[in-house]
Structures are given as C-alpha cells and as structure tokens.
C-alpha cells in the first residue's frame, strides 16, 4: 500500500507551542462554536476543522497576541462556511443572524466559562434522579425522540420533563452568574 512521503518535518518547538495553546483553549473554542450550532456532532466537526486550519496557519500567529482572539476568527470563519454547506438544514440560523451571534459570542468566552462552572454546581445540587434522567436523555446517539418512542405513550412526558429540567438548570445558572441587586 502506498505511504505518502513526509512533506516536511515540523519544528518541534513550534508544534509544542501549538499543542500547548490549543489544548488550553480548546474547551473555550468548543463552547464558542457550540453556541452557534444546534448539534453536538456539528460542533465537533467544526472544531476539528478549526484545529487543522489553526495548525496550518500557525506560523502566521504572533505569539505576543491573544491566542483565543486569533483562534475565534478562524473558528468563526469555519463555522460560517459549515453553515453555508448545511444551509438547507432548517435548524441553522440565517446568515446575518449567524454572523451576529458569532461576533457577539466571541466576546463572551469568559461568560461561557462562568456559566459552565455554575452549571456544574447546579447539577450537583439537583436531585439524583433528575440528573440521571438528563444524562440518559443527553447520551450521544440517544435522541429523546427515540427514547420516548421506545417508552410508547409517555413521549410527550419525556419532552416535558426534559424541558422542565433544562429550564430549571438555566434559571439556576442565571441566578448564580447575575449579581443580586441588578434586577430591574
């Protein structure tokens, strides 16, 4: 079987910096992309593509500037071109809204991080049964629709419960990230 020739040896140091930066900001990038696309596997794909492009262009990166800002520009572009590819999908925002969401989302990286921290606390505070239900509903490859179908009559109940729990979590997160006395 043919093995392609090695194109060039990357400088180890260069690669180390890439690995170090990328690993550090990967969760932020994932959350950024994730706030734009409804589906987890879409997010995965865009993140993957973003990683490749970041590596390809890494020699253009100025180590003195903020990596996340630079990476967000690439991720935004990759997410947009992905959006165009799947524009037929009825769940994808129209382009002008998508761009608006991307631009605003890029400035909210630390906000997303705080929300995630709050979410972990909220989940821990949640009754075990609810948490397990959520885990089951969110197992990749298991769609609530399928779960509900298998359970027969209680399809609507599944959705209701999921929605209720998710909203509860959101409220909990909101209560933890927004300072008291800021209401009204």
């Amino acid at each position: 079987m043919p093995e392609p020739e090695n194109l060039s040896d990357p400088s180890d140091e260069h690669y180390e910096i890439f690995v170090q930066r990328f690993t550090r900001y990967e969760p932020d990038l994932r959350r950024f992309i994730g706030s734009l696309l409804p589906d987890w596997s879409d997010t995965d794909e865009v993140l993957q593509q973003t990683a490749l492009v970041i590596w390809r262009k890494f020699d253009q990166y100025d180590p003195d500037t903020h990596f996340m800002k630079w990476a967000c520009v690439i991720a935004r572009f990759e997410a947009l071109s992905y959006r165009r590819k799947m524009a037929r999908d009825r769940l994808v925002f129209r382009e002008e809204l998508f761009e608006l969401m991307a631009d605003e989302g890029a400035d909210e990286v630390s906000e997303r991080r705080k929300e995630l921290e709050a979410l972990e606390v909220c989940l821990a505070e949640m009754p075990g049964k609810s948490r397990r239900f959520l885990t089951l509903a969110y197992t990749p490859g298991v769609k609530v629709k399928d779960m509900a179908e298998e359970a027969g009559s209680s399809a609507a109940a599944f959705y209701m419960r999921l929605k209720r729990l998710r909203r509860k979590l959101l409220s909990c997160v909101e209560s933890k990230i927004q300072p008291v006395g800021n209401q009204g």
Binding site: R30, R31, S35, W40, E104, R112, E115, E174
Partner: peptide, 22 residues
C-alpha cells in the same frame, strides 16, 4: 433583541455542556 441572542447563546451553551456529561 441583543438580550434574546445572549440568552440563546447561554441556553445553547448549557445544552452542549449537558451533551458532554457522558
């Protein structure tokens, strides 16, 4: 509505985080 957009991003962020629970 910028506020609505922000809430959608937040909600979707939580949704994605839940997907990674497993």
């Amino acid at each position: 509505s910028p506020a609505l957009r922000r809430i959608v991003r937040r909600y979707q962020g939580i949704n994605h985080a839940l997907q990674s629970i497993h």
